[in-house]
């Protein structure tokens, strides 16, 4: 547990006198609060401005919209988690007709044996943990069923967001979902496709992560 470096550092910290200063809790300015419709509008507007493609759809119809997009864009493979909350809906939809649709690829193997394949797939779809209206971001908690790289490696990331999981702010989400009670292996806020402005502030999308982000907001 201890090391000589740790002991020396902690000793210096304890004798620094910093603990003699009592600093009260910060007064954090309140965030804006949005009603359900405003949350959708706010999130869609902000994410749209970051080049995210947002579709607000009825819950019943989202898979049809997905198929329409998949055909239109000509994706060859769609990576998904069969045991995820959206897995069976996708499989059912793909059963009826597969004409012009990408082949479904299940992310069920450890990455060690899957890496080569993974890096060739052109689109991935995930569920979400929620959305944050005031900054325009979706929240992902990758799981066994929907691994971390599913939303990162394929050039297109499709995310399915239930409107009623959108909070007004990050602070509200941390509080209502009781994040302090336990954080997952990895939690992510995503506000758009991967981008860089490192060369003369020219904005380029898709430098390391997805070039495209599609969000379905389910009402």
């Amino acid at each position: 547990m201890t090391s000589p470096d740790r002991d020396r550092i902690m000793a210096r910290l304890h004798t620094s006198g910093t603990e003699h200063t009592v600093v009260p809790e910060a007064a954090i300015p309140p965030d804006s609060a949005f009603d359900p419709q405003e949350k959708i509008t706010q999130l869609a507007t902000l994410m749209g401005a970051m080049k995210t493609e947002v579709h607000v759809v009825e819950t019943a119809g989202w898979v049809d919209k997905l198929k329409e997009l998949a055909r239109e864009r000509g994706w060859e493979q769609l990576l998904y988690g069969p045991a995820s909350p959206i897995g069976s809906a996708i499989e059912t939809a793909w059963e009826s007709d597969t004409d012009g649709l990408p082949a479904l690829v299940a992310y069920t193997e450890p990455v060690e044996s899957f890496k080569d394949k993974l890096f060739q797939i052109d689109a991935g779809i995930t569920s979400t943990q929620g959305g944050i209206a005031d900054v325009g971001a979706i929240v992902l908690w990758p799981t066994e069923e929907e691994p971390r790289l599913l939303s990162l490696v394929p050039p297109v990331h499709v995310a399915v967001l239930h409107a009623d999981t959108i909070t007004s702010s990050l602070a509200e989400m941390i509080s209502v979902q009781n994040w302090a009670g336990g954080m997952p292996t990895n939690a992510l806020l995503i506000s758009g496709p991967s981008k860089t402005a490192d060369i003369e502030f020219t904005l380029v999308f898709g430098v390391h992560g997805p070039k495209e982000l599609v969000v379905f907001i389910l009402k």
């Binding site: 450890p110 005031d134 995503i190 992560g209």
Partner: peptide, 30 residues
Amino acid sequence: IITTYVNMITSPRKEGEKDGPKEVHLVILD
């Protein structure tokens, strides 16, 4: 107002998880 990604890491790959590093090390520098 927010970066593209906010990446929060709380543990290495857990039993059953398909990806993520198997070891995570945190080096705290003085």
